[in-house]
């Protein structure tokens, strides 16, 4: 029997749904790929056809969240680069929120810019797409094309904010908002000073 693309997509969705559920109720570490396969009513071997590791599942969850975030972000008219970046990341955080507790252990492998082997099932795509967004926002706000060092700096700040957020114990994670605001203001300020220096 041929498995249709449609059916495949449905299975993939189901895996992601049950994984989210299990991560949330049992914790990320305590959940095994076997648990996920059982809950999704598929063989463990089949699961690996979809996702080679547990990390890849989270990566895919994050990718999906990013897609939803971009839709939300589309109707925000930001007045400055820092606001545009803030709006973009805050929209992401809102989508990441259900996964906040278990996203932390992944950040290192998933988001680290020097990680060699990022699973093609997720993560890498997000990063490239994310940085392209940043680059286009910078151009939109008249700050030109971003040099590699700028992207590197940005990525450090961004992952720093995510890491902080994952462990943020302040009420409603308000400290993350402040950190994000300051970080983006700092980044945009730095870009501007670089730009005026090179003139």
């Amino acid at each position: 029997m041929r498995i249709t693309a449609e059916k495949k997509a449905a299975t993939r969705e189901r895996i992601l749904d049950v994984a989210t559920e299990l991560f949330r109720s049992n914790g990320y570490d305590a959940t095994t790929t076997r648990d996920i396969a059982v809950a999704a009513e598929i063989a463990t071997g089949t699961l690996f056809n979809y996702f080679s590791t547990k990390e890849a599942i989270v990566g895919a969850l994050a990718d999906a969240a990013v897609v939803r975030a971009r839709v939300e972000q589309a109707n925000i008219a930001a007045e400055s680069l820092e606001e545009a970046l803030f709006a973009m990341i805050v929209a992401e955080l809102r989508q990441f929120k259900p996964h906040r507790k278990f996203i932390a252990p992944l950040l290192e492998t998933w988001l680290c810019p020097i990680a060699e082997s990022v699973d093609s099932n997720g993560g890498n795509l997000s990063r490239v797409e994310h940085l392209e967004m940043v680059d286009s926002l910078a151009r939109e706000h008249g700050l030109g094309e971003l040099a590699p060092v700028a992207l590197q700096l940005y990525w450090t700040l961004y992952t720093g904010v995510l890491a902080f957020w994952a462990a943020d114990k302040s009420p409603k994670q308000e400290d993350t908002l402040a950190l994000l605001d300051e970080s983006m203001a700092m980044f945009a300020g730095w870009l501007r000073s670089e730009q005026s220096e090179s003139k």
Partner: peptide, 16 residues
């Protein structure tokens, strides 16, 4: 004193 931009402000309202 640096004002909160609209995106930060609406996020605060949303949270609160």
């Amino acid at each position: 004193a640096p004002p909160m931009h609209w995106s930060l402000l609406s996020e605060m309202v949303r949270n609160e």
